[in-house]
Amino acid sequence: MSILEDFGVNPLLLIAQVVNFLIILFILKRFMYKPILEAIKKRGDEVAEGIKSAEEGQKKLEVALEKEKEILTNAQIQAEKIITSAREESGELKKQIEENTRRDTERLVEQSKETIKEEARQAEERLIRRIGEIAIALLEKSLGGVFGKKEQKIILKKALTELGKQELL
């Protein structure tokens, strides 16, 4: 054992170093390796999960985009349909409105024509009557100095009858 003594091997130191190393081993294992490895593992798991959910999200997005396209296409088709039918309807409506307007206008024109005719007739009548009166009045004035009262009466009566015949009174 003299070799060991030469190297300064001391049982006390030896045991102390063994115990020291075991303590360090325990503490480091408990407070350094374990939490770090757990943290690494946890993060790895989370990243894996994240990637997985991202992929799922991508898939869902693709499906949604497809659906969106479909919906948009359908909507376009429907919109075109609606526009076409609206155009047709509006054309018809226009025709109808034009028809109605034409008819109304014709009716109005007809009515106004009749009104004008009537008014013209009435005006003519009034004019004739007025002409008659004027004629009588003229006759009275012009007969005053020329004929006696009796003749005057006879002439006027005749004139009145004549005017009545001519529908001027």
């Binding site: 190297f7 001391n10 102390a16 170093q17 020291n20 075991l22």
Partner: peptide, 10 residues
């Protein structure tokens, strides 16, 4: 050598 021997023994 105490230390290295101790480590080797462990």
């Amino acid at each position: 050598l105490n230390t290295t021997l101790a480590l080797a023994v462990v």
